[in-house]
Design a protein around this nucleic acid. Structure first.
Lengths: 235, 235
DNA sequence: TAGTGGTCTAGACCACTGC
DNA sequence: CAGTGGTCTAGACCACTAA
């Protein structure tokens, strides 16, 4: 498992140092020539590592100056909710997350929206239902489904920061790597009208998402329904 | 304005050929050695160009095989429209784009949604209005605004592939690098009901976007309104 | 086996930043 | 001015693909 490609080693070393905080945002990394000496390699090999870190968004490079730590990684996992009055200031409203129940293990529903692999079906399905509230008004109702592949005791463990994604990365080393998301405006049916305190037929934003992860074949599926009278959804 | 950096020239040449369809998805580009000979340059310079095209998502490279055209560009720039019946197959409907008029140069509207820089205001605003049709039914109405910074003759030139973004990258070297996008479900007002052939009050998906580019201080703003009865919007 | 892209070396000159 | 990253050369050996 040990990496033998030199520029990958350098890349990993520097990445770890940055993420662990040895170099902070705004700091300069060692110069290319210093890294050449340190590892005893040629400049092109060092540049390969640094170019990749730049593509990852961890650093920015400036001619005559050096490689500057930036940490501009972008997060794909969040649907952020912004109130209209705060939109221009970029501030986010205080949003409370309420679990309608703890995560539970179920069979996948018949006719599930997304096609499922044999492995996912066998593993069964962890199901969550949450509501996001602002000032005691419901803004978004979200149903989340993930397969129970190598997730020991997931249904009983406490969530970290009340966050599914923090829990997955910290406790299970699962990181979101990409997303397919579909948007529609639909009229509220009886269930949605009830959940979101709207009248039947009012416009509701539907967001259907499939998140890919660093674990092969493991996906997170989410169906969200939003009242966007007073908020927009940023994705 | 002529580019003097060799690998950028090669990169631009290949990109143009791909976007204009000289090489199609699945085709192999000339090998690295062939490109070396053709341009009379060393292999590293060619590889620099190809690496960048790979990062852009235009090609994929395979050891022992070659550089394969992929066109998996970051979906930053595209709002892709998918019909429900085709969703699972991943196929996209045939969508026609109709310009309500050619791009025109205007002053920025008072009270424009996004804050504008001094430079943008001075440069004035290029405005486009387009409608996407499927089977002669309007699906999406989109208004686009960009500042007229260093865009000689943009309003008169012919679009490449009828696409704003293809034209910006091929003719002006402007690449989209990021996006802020907000989604809402709103009831159709009279104008939207008319444009999208809906009844007033029907749910309409509103997408407000600000696209960042590789050109400092240059942004593309877009406001889209979609009838999602028969289609979803993927973003 | 011939050709491909992946990795790597050891040089070189340049434009730019900061002192 | 010395040091930085940006560009470029002309080689080399490797692992992989396809005929």
């Amino acid at each position: 498992m040990a990496e033998k490609v030199i520029y990958r080693i350098v890349q990993k070393d520097l990445r770890r140092s940055i993420i662990e905080g040895k170099y902070k945002v705004g700091d300069l990394l060692p110069s290319e020539n210093e890294l050449c000496s340190k590892y005893g390699i040629s400049r092109m090999t060092v540049r390969n590592a640094l170019n990749n870190l730049e593509t990852e968004g961890l650093i920015e490079r400036q001619k005559g100056k050096g490689s500057i730590v930036r940490l501009k990684r972008k997060s794909i996992e969040l649907l952020s909710i912004k109130g209209f009055t705060e939109i221009m200031k970029g501030k986010e409203r205080k949003i409370d997350t309420v679990f309608l129940h703890k995560p539970i293990l179920l069979d996948w529903e018949d006719g599930f929206y997304w096609p499922l692999s044999e492995e996912e079906i066998i593993s069964k399905c962890i199901y969550l239902k949450r509501v996001r509230m602002s000032a005691e008004k419901p803004i978004m109702m979200e149903k989340t489904y993930l397969s129970n592949m190598n997730l020991p005791s997931f249904c009983t463990e406490e969530f970290i920061n009340k966050s599914l994604f923090d829990t997955l990365i910290v406790n299970h080393d699962i990181e979101m790597t990409g997303v397919v998301q579909k948007f529609r405006a639909i009229p509220a049916n009886a269930e949605l009208a009830d959940s979101l305190q709207l009248i039947v037929g009012a416009p509701v934003l539907e967001i259907i998402r499939k998140l890919t992860t660093n674990r092969e074949g493991f996906f997170v599926y989410s169906f969200a329904y939003c009242n966007t009278d007073d908020f927009t959804i940023e994705a």
